[in-house]
Design a protein around this nucleic acid. Structure first.
Length: 520
DNA sequence: CTGTGCGTTGTATTG
DNA sequence: TCAATACAACGCACA
């Protein structure tokens, strides 16, 4: 226990706990520490006007905003059960927090460390502000399994560029830190300063969103309570968890997804990755037999960890230019390219599987990993030759689990810009979906125009004879778009463009020397 | 410097 | 039905 006088006086500890991610009460060392040693604790969430801003400054979609608000609402409820509540302030952290810290005479600031450039900078600014006020700062790295600084030290600042290398690094690190218990109680917030101007959690409408029609609302509610419920639910089948292999799951199962859908809860920190980790280990022990990385569930957690480390270690990770691990590729930025991007984003490519996936993305804020692969490949090196950054922005806006590090990494992966380079392995917008769902149930659900199309044409309706199109009530070119490109032609062309871009990069910048050139 | 093996999740064809 | 293979040939790690 920290020796702090419990009553009044200069030693009275007044703690502000700043929530960003980590929207949970369980395994939250910053909150726990405050609860154990401070006489006053102020749990604060700062809701930026642009709402969870990224470096693009893109305003997030309504489903993602709703997931965030539900998570905040749930956090507020949990804090209330502990005797406190969430103070939700509108504004930018750098504008709002320093005056609040002064007003409350804060002498302790606690918040979770964040690796993303925007939030890392915000954290540094606030730590400085707090220190200027003479406050102590507690900033534990609790979003990932390991403290990224610890991983960087272990690899001697030479971050792994492949998953295999990352696994070797993790093998040297032992078990992640133990899970912290939830606080037993929190001091009541009595100060009146938080009255009118600091209101509770706003509604979607407060934030300027029109409420979504039911058909376009994500079926996945936000919040720690739901996260823990979902975790328990998924872990009821120990065998399934232990034997889980990602490539064996299906992108077209949309009623009950074939994966766990824990990603949005991990993204916002409604679920602690460490809780998930130890729960997995327990399931593996119980079941005996289990799958292994990279395909296992633990492997998925390690992919997250790997990409978080990459986003932390490599500069300009969110863009092509100036990104040391990203291939420089002359993507189509012309008007034509923009038109193709619009077709893709609005589910009007004329490839039913792609359009179904893009519709699911919009309606549910979630897509199976392999469906993400298919649409990402299609937009970039597969068919449309549009920059991965554009696709990343759309995912960032619409996915409830949009996660800066993972999103960038996966877009680079699929566009063969980094991590993965076998550009001759290309997803077919027709064959890939058909392999999982030959009758096209997935398409029929998300692309109503094609509901009556016979299954032999549902993946390529433009090939159906006019009489068949008429009978299905769907004339291609009228009721459903013609394909935006010819996949066979476009993918072949793009492969040679990739070859040229790689070749150019090689000739222009020879492999970087690890150490300074030795004198001969 | 060079060769080899490997890489979470491709496709189309063949037997 | 399924497994093997050609396709055309990537970068990275390591020996």
């Amino acid at each position: 226990m920290v020796a702090v006088k419990k009553e009044g006086g200069p030693l009275r500890k007044r703690s502000l706990v700043w929530f960003r991610k980590g929207l949970r009460v369980h395994d939250n060392p910053a909150l726990l520490e405050a609860s154990q040693s401070a006489a006053e604790v102020y749990p604060v969430f700062v809701l930026d006007p642009s709402i969870d801003p990224t470096e693009d400054g893109v305003k997030i979609g309504a489903n993602r905003a709703q997931f965030l608000l539900e998570s905040l609402e749930d956090l507020d409820q949990s804090l209330k059960k502990l005797g406190s509540h969430l103070i939700c302030i509108r504004g930018r952290p750098e504008d709002v927090l320093p005056p609040l810290m002064r007003e409350l005479d804060i002498n302790h600031l606690g918040f979770e460390f964040d690796t993303e450039p925007y939030w890392k900078a915000q954290g540094e600014k606030m730590a400085k502000e707090a220190e200027n006020l003479g406050a102590r700062v507690h900033c534990p790295a609790t979003h990932t399994l390991y403290d990224p600084e610890h991983l960087m030290a272990k690899c001697m600042m030479d971050a792994p560029k492949s998953y295999g290398q990352f696994l070797k690094l993790v093998a040297k690190c032992g078990s992640p830190p133990a899970v912290a218990s939830a606080p037993e109680s929190l001091p009541q917030i009595s100060k009146d300063v938080l009255g009118r101007k600091h209101s509770g959690v706003p509604t979607l409408r407060d934030l300027g969103y029109e409420p979504l029609p039911a058909s376009e609302r994500t079926p996945f509610p936000g919040g720690e309570t739901e996260a823990l419920r979902r975790l328990e639910d998924q872990f009821r089948d120990t065998r399934r968890i232990a034997l889980f292999e990602k490539p064996k799951t299906s992108p077209t199962d949309f009623e009950t997804p074939s994966t766990t859908v824990l990603s949005p809860y991990l993204k916002f920190g409604c679920l602690s990755s460490r809780v998930f980790y130890f729960k997995l280990k327990e399931a593996y022990r119980k079941n005996g037999k289990h799958a292994d990385p990279p395909v296992s569930l633990l492997g998925q957690l390690y992919w997250r960890e790997f990409f978080y480390l990459c986003g932390y270690a490599f500069p300009n990770f969110g863009k092509m230019e100036g990104n040391p691990i990203c291939r420089q590729i002359p993507w189509d930025h012309s008007e034509g390219g923009k038109e193709k991007l619009r077709a893709w984003e609005s589910a009007q490519t004329g490839y039913p599987f792609i359009d179904a996936a893009m519709t699911q993305l919009r309606q549910q804020g979630w897509l199976h990993h392999l469906a993400r692969h298919a649409v990402a490949c299609f937009l970039t090196r597969g068919d449309l030759w549009v920059s991965w950054e554009e696709g990343r922005k759309v995912f960032d806006k619409l996915l409830i689990d949009a996660d800066w590090s993972l999103n960038n990494a996966n877009w680079m992966w699929l566009s063969c810009s980094s991590f993965f380079y076998q550009y001759f392995r290309c997803y077919s917008p027709v064959a890939f979906g058909r392999k999982y769902d030959p009758s096209g149930k997935y398409i029929r659900n998300f692309v109503p125009a094609l509901r009556k199309m016979p299954k032999q044409y549902i993946y390529e309706p433009w090939k159906a004879p006019l009489s068949v199109q008429e009978a299905a009530g769907c004339i291609v070119g009228v009721d459903y778009p013609m394909p935006v490109c010819d996949h066979a032609v476009a993918s072949k062309e793009n492969m040679s463009k990739m070859a040229a871009a790689y070749k150019k990069a090689k000739s222009e910048s020879p492999p970087p020397k690890k150490k300074a050139k030795k004198a001969k």
